[in-house]
């Protein structure tokens, strides 16, 4: 039951349409970019070798899409708690995340259906919109 489009999450607070998630600031360090690329098994040179990145027309190395995806997932589960289960994550990349920048993730609950919410996520960095995404997350009610 989700009267008024509100569902309960484990902590007992409602997921309400229009609810804004607190922003999450992420420092885009060279270490984060390289660690994310390697943890995701992505050895494309543009994610770890600045010189080769420049030869390919990029001013520096930049974050790979798998890391952005992971950060978006983390942003949602950080907020909704360890019981939250990601159902869908769809992201589109825009302005790249280069070292030295800061990305701020923001989110807003767009829809709820029972214990499932659709959250619109934006990640903005110093040069524009790095990521726009939609995440579907289920937060089962605690039993008992």
């Amino acid at each position: 039951m989700s009267a008024g489009g509100a569902a309960m999450r484990s902590g007992g607070t409602a997921m309400r349409v229009g609810e804004e998630l607190p922003p999450l600031e992420i420092e885009i360090t060279r270490t984060l970019i390289v660690a994310g690329a390697i943890a995701s098994r992505d050895y494309q040179d543009v994610h770890h070798d600045a010189e080769l990145a420049r030869l390919k027309g990029s001013p520096d190395i930049f974050m790979n899409i798998l890391t952005t995806n992971g950060l978006v997932g983390r942003y949602i589960t950080d907020h909704f708690g360890p019981r939250a289960v990601l159902r869908k994550v769809a992201i589109r990349l825009g302005a790249p995340n280069y070292p030295g920048d800061t990305m701020v993730l923001t989110g807003r609950v767009e829809e709820t259906d029972g214990d499932t919410a659709t959250v619109r996520v934006l990640g903005t960095n110093g040069i524009g919109r790095h990521v726009t995404g939609t995440v579907t997350v289920t937060v089962p009610r605690e039993v008992g």
Partner: peptide, 16 residues
């Protein structure tokens, strides 16, 4: 067209 950049990723998770 020797360079690659990923632009979109849409994933659905059916079970953990």
């Amino acid at each position: 067209c020797t360079s690659v950049v990923a632009t979109d990723c849409e994933q659905e998770y059916l079970r953990p």
